[in-house]
Structures are given as C-alpha cells and as structure tokens.
C-alpha cells in the first residue's frame, strides 16, 4: 500500500516537474497520468514478479482512491458557493449558458461517438 502510494506520488511529482520545466498548460497530475499509462504499457512485456506485485498494489490503491473521487471535489466546490458573488448580476445568464451548453455538448458528442462506433464496427465485420 505504502509503495503503491509512493509510486503514484512519484508520477505526480514527475508530472509537476515536467509541467514547470516546460511551462506547460497541462496540469502536473494529468501529465503524471499519461506517464503512468505509458509506463504500464511498457512494463507489460516484463514479467518480473516484483513488478507484478507492485502493479497489483497500485491497482488496489487506485481502485480505492477512484471510488471516492467525488468527495475530493467538495472543498473546491464549497469555494464556488462562497465566491458566487463574483458573478454579480450575471449569475442567471451564466447558469443558463452552463446548463444549456452542457446538455447540448453531452448530447452531441455522445450521439456522434455512438454513430462512429457503429460505422467502424460495421466496416470491421
């Protein structure tokens, strides 16, 4: 467990360093995610028992953290409510844009991907 946590923190740290060094707009943790994903793909060919064990504990830890993902957004979410006055008289218009815009984006992109998946599936068959 502790080793797994260390691995995840290490990848985040690498991510943060890369982000700061290259002045990227992509946040450190997202870079860490991409690095970890490629490392896992690369390690697939190596069948050392130690690495397999470590991988297993990283998987377990990851399952534990990601199942409480929602909770982690609460502190910053409270900030939204406490600072909502920043939007001044625009609050309702902004909410309108967010609600309508999000509904349209979800609907269009889901429909698009479903159609694409069907077309590609048919071509492969």
């Amino acid at each position: 467990m502790l080793r797994a946590f260390f691995v995840i923190l290490l990848f985040q740290l690498f991510g943060e360093i890369i982000q700061k060094y290259f002045l990227l707009i992509i946040p450190g943790p997202v870079i860490g995610l991409i690095l970890l994903l490629f490392t896992l793909i690369f390690l697939k060919k190596i069948k050392s028992k130690k690495i397999l064990n470590l991988k297993k504990s990283v998987v377990n830890l990851s399952n534990a953290i990601t199942s409480y993902l929602s909770l982690l957004f609460v502190p910053i979410g409270v900030g939204v409510v406490m600072h909502v006055s920043y939007l001044e008289q625009n609050l309702f218009q902004v909410l309108g844009v967010i609600i309508i815009g999000t509904i349209i984006t979800i609907a269009l992109s889901a429909k698009l991907m479903e159609i694409l998946n069907k077309i590609i599936q048919k071509k492969n068959d």
Binding site: Q12, L33, V58, T66, L72, I76
Partner: peptide, 17 residues
C-alpha cells in the same frame, strides 16, 4: 482532501490501462 485530487488523477491511469 483537496490534495488527494492530484494522486487520484494519476491513479486514473490504471482503469484506462
């Protein structure tokens, strides 16, 4: 709690993998 958002983001690599 907020801090864990970073490690949690990194951990998302596992389900994707």
């Amino acid at each position: 709690i907020h801090f864990l958002l970073g490690p949690a983001t990194v951990a998302l690599a596992i389900p994707i993998y």
